[in-house]
Design a protein around this nucleic acid. Structure first.
Ligand code: MN
Ligand code: MN
Ligand code: MN
Ligand code: MN
Lengths: 230, 230
DNA sequence: CATTATTTTTAGAATAGCCTAAACTACTAC
DNA sequence: GTAGTAGTTTAGGCTATTCTAAAAATAATG
């Protein structure tokens, strides 16, 4: 720590770190080392160390005992990696016959290995998409994100028709479970009943009635049907 | 060196090392540390070190001062990586619009990052090809290679019609130079004149007459036209 | 506002890959 | 066969990334 060299933005660890900070930043002002350790599955001391080195590289702003925040450079880099990740995920489903639950782990590796040339080819082939195979927003080359107004079934009013807009889990088992119930992007859904105390939901999906646990439902986002009055 | 842990076959360094040994083994009985250092662009001591660790992992047979040879396991692994590399190269040209000179460097990274699932998808999509975009043999999943009888222009008799069967350079500049002259896989070629002392060749390619330097011509392999008497 | 509990950082260490400089072996030529 | 040269290995070191155990700081509690 007397001599500490700055991190380089092109390593796998640094890129995953940037993504993790970006994601956690959406929910909290500053991101704690513990939260990062949890998300990255590494020890807290490793996070502290990385935070120091990325501070020197001016990718994050780090204050001892008060967590981390992305700098402008850091955010740009994070969005670049997220763009890669999501373009790859979409491509795997669209052109290589992957099932949704298979794409995340593959993309987690490929995002670091692939060249800008490769990403450009994918973007071109997919006709510059803005949503990936989970329904998550793909940032543009300039970092712009076209967010939509989404809702979680657990907070969406009963009786309103909506469409599944995002299945935002990275866990293959959860995704398989949800898709097994009929939740796929674009499905028509309507909440029929909602049990209190974080109980299960009864949902009408494309005409079929199914039950879903509260916890697993938090990985679903729906979008109100266009044209349907609020 | 008192305690030395065996290498693990799934690291980038180890995989590239295996490929290098495999390639050099075609031309020499045992592969020297210097030859490997040269091919891998690392120092000779690094090669010695790696040789030791890969010996412990039973991937190579290494004898001090007498170089290295792949074990059966090592050869299987090497062929697996070569298969990946070449399927990726073919895919990049066929489906993603890459030019031949762009594929090698990309494949050199991707071969380590991609899953077996991914490779299976490529093989399927390309209809289980046996030749990559350079014209090199793609080993099967079981390691089998369907070699052809190829010739270098510099040793091929004058006046015989042949087809370009392989452009086996990894150097983008060389490939661009050759393709600029009209050498592409499948082109009709006929040697018109050959200068002595490793001098240039005059070649008829698809009707056009071009000159090629001796050195650069060593990266071309041709196959005698089928049906044309020897 | 003390005391405890939780979080975070420091200290010290390991591993894979790499390096340079120095020592050593093996082959080549008298 | 001995000297010289070319090729290899050993010795010693460095970096990035990870870890565990211990110390320190912050946050929560009564
Ligand atoms: Mn993902
Ligand atoms: Mn990743
Ligand atoms: Mn190649
Ligand atoms: Mn490689």
């Amino acid at each position: 720590m007397v001599t500490m060299r700055p991190a380089t933005a092109d390593s796998q660890s640094v890129q995953d770190f940037l993504k993790a900070v970006y994601t956690l930043q959406q929910k909290m002002e500053r991101v704690s080392t513990n939260a990062l350790a949890e998300m990255l599955s590494i020890s807290a001391p490793s996070v502290t160390d990385m935070a120091h080195r990325m501070m020197l590289a001016e990718l994050v702003n780090y204050e001892k005992y008060h967590g981390v925040r992305l700098t402008e450079t850091g955010e740009r880099e994070a969005l670049r990696v997220i763009r890669r990740h999501r373009l790859i995920e979409l491509y795997l489903v669209t052109d290589l016959g992957y099932a949704l639950h298979e794409v995340h782990d593959e993309a987690e590796q490929l995002e670091h290995a692939v060249s800008d040339r490769f990403i450009a080819a994918l973007a071109e082939k997919l006709d510059h998409p803005t949503l990936d195979s989970h329904g998550e927003v793909i940032p543009g080359i300039d970092g712009t994100c076209h967010y939509r107004e989404l809702h979680t079934p657990s907070q969406f009013p009963i009786g309103i028709k909506a469409k599944v807009a995002c299945l935002n889990s990275n866990n293959p088992e959860i995704l398989q479970h949800l898709m097994g119930k009929g939740f796929t992007l674009g499905s028509q859904v309507e909440i029929i009943t909602r049990e209190p105390f974080e109980g299960p939901l009864t949902v009408l999906i494309d005409g079929k009635t199914v039950m879903v646990g509260y916890t697993v439902a938090t990985y679903i986002s729906v979008e109100q049907d266009k044209g349907a009055g609020k």
